[in-house]
């Protein structure tokens, strides 16, 4: 019996690393976007604009990571 431990370890490592990265990025983006408004819905000024910009940029990065995931699972893209 031959067990491909390396592939199994890769699956575990990729699962942990990619999930933590995506969730942390999402949490940061959500915090930045949620925190850039006052309780009454008004903006907090320049700092808030920067926070929103960074939040949106993080969401764009996450979108690219999702596209990379799709690229990896579709053999036609890389075989």
């Amino acid at each position: 019996m031959k067990v491909n431990w390396l592939a199994l370890a890769e699956v575990a490592g990729v699962t942990f690393g990619a999930t933590v990265a995506l969730v942390v990025l999402m949490a940061i983006a959500a915090r930045l976007l949620a925190g850039s408004y006052e309780d009454d819905g008004s903006s907090r000024g320049t700092a808030a604009v920067v926070e929103r910009g960074v939040g949106v940029a993080i969401l764009v990065v996450m979108g690219l990571m999702v596209l990379f995931g799709i690229y990896l699972m579709v053999p036609y893209f890389h075989d």
Binding site: A7, E10, V11, V14, T15, A18, T19, G69, L72, M73
Partner: peptide, 9 residues
């Protein structure tokens, strides 16, 4: 991520 990685291998 787990499903995609497993499917890939």
């Amino acid at each position: 991520v787990a499903i995609l990685a497993s499917s890939h291998f």
